[in-house]
């Protein structure tokens, strides 16, 4: 479950290090110079839900996703992800939670010197899964995204669509409780986009809470679901 309540975000505001609670006044003072990129967001995404995140470029979709993936802490308000209050959590509590969140980045963010196999295996290895166990999962995941012939390819040797699929395989290989995707079909042709959407839908059917940011109306039309609409950092349409 993801719950936002009265959430505001400014970049440049001091992020609380190590979960230490700094004075509210100090945070406000440091942040006062920049405008809020997200304002007064309040919504709840139930566990197992599928939600579109819509809005023009610069509306704050990526910032909202970064809050959900624990890459940022809110400047004000409360963000609760999978049962943990992110603003008040200790820093050491976050890595474990991050392992339950799968993220597909718009720019893939694959590690360039690791093969497709190793990129997909990375979350499992970080979680301490033994080599013997993770191999089958990784191979199956790569086969399923159609890259079983490209196991040893490095990202720079792959097309944008192939990298996109590796990024998706990496995001779902741990069977995350929350799957966040930022324009996951941006680099794919129509059949591939359909397939990726089908995968994400299947993950959702298996119980994963899914949030997909996109500005493709075509994609939304294909899979009707509740949507969060952002405009200028504010929520303009809920559901």
């Amino acid at each position: 479950m993801v719950r936002f309540s009265e959430v505001g975000l400014r970049y440049g505001a001091p992020q609380r290090p190590l979960g230490a609670r700094r004075g509210e006044a100090a945070r406000q003072a440091g942040a006062a110079t920049r405008p809020e990129v997200l304002r007064d967001l309040s919504f709840t995404l139930p566990a197992g839900s599928f939600t579109w995140l819509l809005g023009a470029s610069g509306a704050g979709k990526s910032s909202l996703l970064r809050l959900m993936q624990l890459a940022l802490r809110p400047t004000r308000g409360t963000v609760e992800v999978l049962g943990l209050d992110i603003g008040g959590a200790r820093r050491w509590q976050l890595p474990h939670l991050r392992r339950r969140i799968g993220v597909v980045f718009q720019d893939f963010r694959l590690l360039p010197h690791l093969t497709a196999f190793d990129n997909v295996a990375l979350p499992l290895r970080l979680a301490g899964r033994p080599e013997g166990q993770l191999r089958a999962d990784v191979l199956e995941m790569l086969r399923w995204v159609g890259l079983d012939s490209r196991l040893h390819a490095l990202p720079p040797e792959m097309s944008g669509g192939e990298q996109q699929r590796v990024a998706i395989a990496r995001a779902v290989v741990t069977r995350p409780a929350l799957l966040l995707a930022d324009e996951p079909t941006g680099n794919l042709d129509a059949p591939q986009a359909r397939r990726v959407l089908a995968l994400v839908g299947e993950m959702n059917r298996l119980g994963t809470t899914v949030v997909v940011a996109t500005h493709s109306q075509e994609l939304v039309a294909r899979q009707p679901a509740p949507a969060l609409r952002l405009e200028g950092g504010r929520l303009v349409g809920d559901r």
Binding site: V172, R195, G201, E202
Partner: peptide, 14 residues
């Protein structure tokens, strides 16, 4: 096209 030809059933591992 290979990817499009497959059905969208998720891997058993999921």
């Amino acid at each position: 096209s290979a990817i499009a030809d497959r059905d969208a059933a998720p891997p058993a591992g999921l």
